[in-house]
Design a protein around this nucleic acid. Structure first.
Lengths: 132, 132
DNA sequence: ACAGTTGTTATAGTTCGCATAGAATAACTA
DNA sequence: TAGTTATTCTATGCGAACTATAACAACTGT
């Protein structure tokens, strides 16, 4: 497995590291039980700070994707298994969106907002669209 | 239409405003040709700065969802039409992910990373998972 | 032509998350 | 016991986000 980050990207470094690992879980390159390299090693290899890598690891832990135990390192959690099941569906959606001219960036924003999709409040407070 | 923001959310205010409008386009509450309220008015109603609202509008313009012209205001672009076509698919995916215990937040991260899905580099650089 | 509306641009200050650095500590492995 | 690795702490620099004011340019309606 290889983690890539782009210092020029507007995206936070820790977020890029986490995304990179998520992708590997999604593609099956990383499976439950597999061990991630030590944060120190990743940091050195990418020439970034150890804390930044650990930040990514801790975020993945919050998402239930990895288990962290000091002395033992970071291990892909069993909970991560369902993620691979979504791989095909996600790829499909992204592809279909792209065909419609909707970027993955925009699509991600929509998915992100889908937390309160059911409590969505579109109650009209003023009229702006009544006449041609 | 009603725009909601949460000052305590870790998400940027301008991003919340943009997401709120995107949702309304997605649900059909806003259609091409519809006019958004003036940035000044939205800012006053939400008790935030005018620039923050305009930042959201400009982001939506970058995504091709709205047209901005001074003196005339912000209007939903014709390009935004395909977005509604994705509504059902997105809802499906989010629901399926939730059933698997994958949060919309995590899902959004994955979709976001799908920009370089085809040039993805999982070339092994070291061995960590060869034996039990 | 004129006044009102609305996005655009500019400047400036505050707050806060991100990233860095160094160091000490606790849990696990061999 | 020695080595590995995540955890926690303090501290600093940087930039994005947000705010506040103000002037300006394009468009609308009268």
């Amino acid at each position: 497995m290889l983690i890539r980050v782009d210092a020029d990207s507007p995206r936070a470094l820790y977020d890029q590291v986490a995304a990179s690992i998520r992708s590997d879980i999604l593609s099956g390159a990383l499976a439950p039980g597999d061990r991630l390299p030590a944060a120190r090693d990743v940091a050195e290899a990418l020439d970034i700070n150890q804390h930044t890598v650990l930040h990514a690891y801790q975020r993945l832990r919050d998402e239930g994707l990895v288990d962290l135990r000091r002395g033992r390192g970071a291990v892909i959690a069993a909970t991560a298994a369902p993620l691979a099941d979504l791989a095909h569906d996600i790829d499909d959606l992204v592809r279909r969106a792209a065909a419609l001219g909707v970027s993955a960036d925009t699509l991600a924003g929509i998915v992100h907002a889908h937390r309160d999709a059911r409590t969505h409040t579109t109650r009209p407070s003023s009229r702006e669209e009544d006449s041609p």
